[in-house]
C-alpha cells in the first residue's frame, strides 16, 4: 500500500469523517481530504488526482450510490477504487452497490480492524 496516496473521505457527518480520517492516519495515510456529499465530492475527484475514495451512502444532495455510479461512468475516474462505509444494511442495497462496481462494503457500526482489513484486501486485489 502506498501510504502517500491521496484519499477522499465522503460523509455528511463531520464526526464520522473525523473517525475515518483518524483511522486512516493510524494506518499511515496522511494525504486525506473530505467532502460532505456526492455533489461536493465529484468535482473534487474530477479535478484532483485522488487514488482512493471512502464514501457513505445516505447523504443529502448526491447519495453515495449515485456518486459510485458517476465515478464508474466517468472515463477518467472509472478505475478509482471505492470503499463504501455506511449504515445501509439492506441486502438489495449491498447487491446494488456490488453491481455498481463498489470495491468494498463496510456496515456501520464498524471496528478499526474491519476497516483495515477491507482496505488491505482492496489494495491486495488491485496489486
Amino acid at each position: 500500500m502506498n501510504k502517500s496516496m491521496k484519499i477522499l473521505v465522503v460523509d455528511d457527518f463531520s464526526t464520522m469523517r473525523r473517525i475515518i480520517k483518524n483511522l486512516l492516519k493510524d494506518l499511515g495515510f496522511s494525504n486525506i481530504q473530505e467532502a460532505d456529499d456526492g455533489n461536493t465530492a465529484l468535482p473534487m475527484l474530477q479535478q484532483g488526482d485522488f487514488d482512493f475514495v471512502v464514501t457513505d451512502w445516505n447523504m443529502p444532495g448526491m447519495q453515495g450510490i449515485d456518486l459510485l455510479r458517476a465515478i464508474r461512468s466517468d472515463a477518467k475516474l472509472k478505475h478509482l477504487p471505492v470503499l463504501m462505509v455506511t449504515a445501509e444494511a439492506k441486502k438489495e442495497q449491498i447487491v446494488a452497490a456490488a453491481q455498481a462496481g463498489v470495491n468494498g462494503y463496510v456496515v456501520k457500526p464498524f471496528t478499526a480492524a474491519t476497516l483495515k482489513e477491507k482496505l488491505e484486501k482492496i489494495f491486495e486485489r488491485l496489486g
Binding site: 483518524n22 483511522l23 457500526p109
Partner: peptide
C-alpha cells in the same frame, strides 16, 4: 483510545 474514537460513531448513526 481507538475504542474511544470508534465509539463516537454513535453521533452519525443517531443523527441519521
Amino acid at each position: 483510545l481507538t475504542e474511544v474514537l470508534m465509539a463516537q460513531g454513535y453521533q452519525d448513526l443517531t443523527g441519521q
